[in-house]
């Protein structure tokens, strides 16, 4: 079993554009202090930021749990919200249900989940319509999945 070195959990509120990005910024600072490989930090930050924005844009509330072990980084985002009726579609680049307002802000280009998957060594998403979505991601510290 890998040794757990650090874990943090952040509550993200739906529609809270004011504080969007705070959790990923804190995760980045923690990883930087620990002198983790910059490429690993970059991938973790993309995952955390996209996950945070997904909660802000679509869900009511969510929790981002970040766990660092001596082998890998785990990021899990569990939200209470509308859920995703068709996961295959949601994972398709360019597919989005964003509103015009979100698109004007430069979001909603259907990059969120694909970006999370692309930057993960292990990725899973589970969703129940009307209940919420759980996205789990693992990034290996040595660059190998």
């Amino acid at each position: 079993m890998p040794d757990e070195l650090l874990s943090r959990s952040f509550t993200i509120h739906g529609r809270d554009f004011e504080r969007a990005g705070e959790a990923s910024t804190e995760i980045k600072s923690l990883l930087k202090e620990l002198e983790i490989d910059p490429a690993v930090i970059r991938r973790t930050v993309v995952i955390a930021f996209e996950a945070e924005m997904n909660v802000v844009m679509y869900a009511d509330e969510g929790t981002v749990t970040f766990v660092l072990t001596d082998e890998d980084i785990g990021v899990e985002i569990a939200d209470r919200g509308p859920g995703i009726p068709d996961l295959d579609l949601a994972l398709q680049e360019g597919w989005s249900t964003a509103t015009d307002e979100m698109r004007e802000m430069g979001f909603g280009f259907g990059m969120g989940l694909p970006n999370i998957r692309r930057n993960s060594d292990e990725f899973s998403v589970k969703s129940r319509v009307g209940e919420g979505t759980v996205v789990s991601s693992r990034i290996s510290l040595d660059g190998a999945p």
């Binding site: 554009f17 990005g21 705070e22 990923s24 910024t25 970059r42 930050v45 930021f49 430069g106």
Partner: peptide
């Protein structure tokens, strides 16, 4: 052209 807070958060992250 984006001037909102999340743009700054994203810029800071990269």
């Amino acid at each position: 052209l984006q001037t909102h807070k999340s743009l700054i958060a994203a810029a800071n992250l990269v």
